[in-house]
């Protein structure tokens, strides 16, 4: 189905925001200003954006340690999110979560998760609102190829299938589980096929193509809202950088990196498609680029200049105030 110009602009903005944000974070990390480990999402922008353009604020996502892209695609507050990555008092999680544990419940972002695969059952739990309360909602879990081997993910798929819950299992096959290639770590090699074994429809597609992801997401979301249960979407898109910043990436060649950037750049592919089809003017997108760069730069400067949490906050919010 042809997307409206507004939706195309929205999609591009989400993807480009991730790109600009992550490149900026990479620079900041290199300068030593980021007080924690970061895992960059560059190369996979079309996946988070293609899924999240089909979701509403009331819909939920459960994210991963590589979660900046999911946060931005779900429209988390850019400034407070940046502050959180810098562990500042005014960050989304008051500085106690950091990059690997960002959440923004106000937009249904149920949290990045530093335990690989643990987010899948949590997404299933959020989807129980459809069954228990009759709410119209969809819940998506982003799951890496590495996480796809975790028992928690299998249990989550089975439970969602048995209870017919409105869940999207979005497998982000970026080629590597930390340092270990998917050709080594994935028995049978077919992540989408495993999901099918649990009785849910599954898709296997090019994760650098926004339109492929979005189309599958639209179908899966519609099915979920109807009450027809979960779907799985396996998106293949290699990450451009290491598992974490500082990873020397001895496990892959320079040629591989060059090829991905040349042939599988989700932003380049998107621009070419919409410009060739005459759907959006190139100058419109250039304006967005400039605007996003200034938004991100401002957010980073603001974060760096904002205070760390007070030491008195060390033991707060372990329990509900006054209950312990």
């Amino acid at each position: 189905m042809q997307l409206s110009k507004d939706k195309l602009i929205d999609a591009y903005t989400r993807m480009k925001k991730i790109r600009v944000f992550e490149e900026t974070m990479r620079d900041e990390f290199a300068k030593g200003t980021v007080p924690a480990f970061i895992h960059l999402y560059i190369g996979q922008e079309a996946i988070a954006s293609g899924i999240c353009v089909e979701l509403n604020d009331n819909d939920t996502i459960a994210s991963t340690h590589r979660g900046h892209g999911h946060c931005l695609a779900k429209n988390s507050d850019l400034e407070r999110m940046t502050m959180e990555i810098f562990c500042r008092a005014d960050g989304l999680c008051e500085g106690k979560g950091g990059s690997m544990h960002i959440a923004d419940l106000s937009v249904g972002m149920l949290g990045a998760n530093a335990i690989v695969g643990a987010n899948a059952p949590i997404a299933v739990g959020a989807a129980l609102r459809q069954r228990v309360m009759g709410e119209n909602l969809v819940s998506a879990a982003f799951i890496g190829d590495g996480a796809s081997n975790q028992g928690a993910v299998f249990e989550a798929m089975n439970l969602a299938s048995v209870l017919k819950l409105p869940v999207l299992f979005v497998f982000e096959n970026n080629g590597y589980a930390e340092f270990t290639g998917v050709d080594y770590h994935c028995g049978g090699g077919d992540i989408a096929g495993r999901a099918e074994g649990f009785g849910m429809p599954s898709y296997k597609l090019d994760g650098s193509d926004f339109f492929a992801v979005q189309e599958a997401a639209a179908e899966a979301v519609e099915r979920a809202r109807r009450g027809d249960g979960p779907s799985a979407i396996e998106c293949y898109a290699k990450r451009w950088y290491g598992h974490f910043e500082g990873d020397p990436q001895h496990y892959r060649t320079k040629e591989e990196l060059e090829t991905i950037r040349k042939d599988s750049d989700p932003l380049k592919i998107f621009r070419q498609k919409v410009e060739d089809a005459g759907l959006v003017e190139s100058s419109d997108l250039d304006t967005i680029d400039e605007d996003l760069l200034s938004q991100v730069t401002n957010a980073v400067e603001k974060a760096k200049n904002s205070p760390l949490p007070n030491v008195e906050e060390l033991t707060t919010n372990v329990y509900e105030k006054g209950s312990y």
Partner: peptide
């Protein structure tokens, strides 16, 4: 347990 945790959080 994960579904219960996710349900509680939401």
């Amino acid at each position: 347990m994960g579904a219960a945790a996710g349900a509680a959080l939401s």
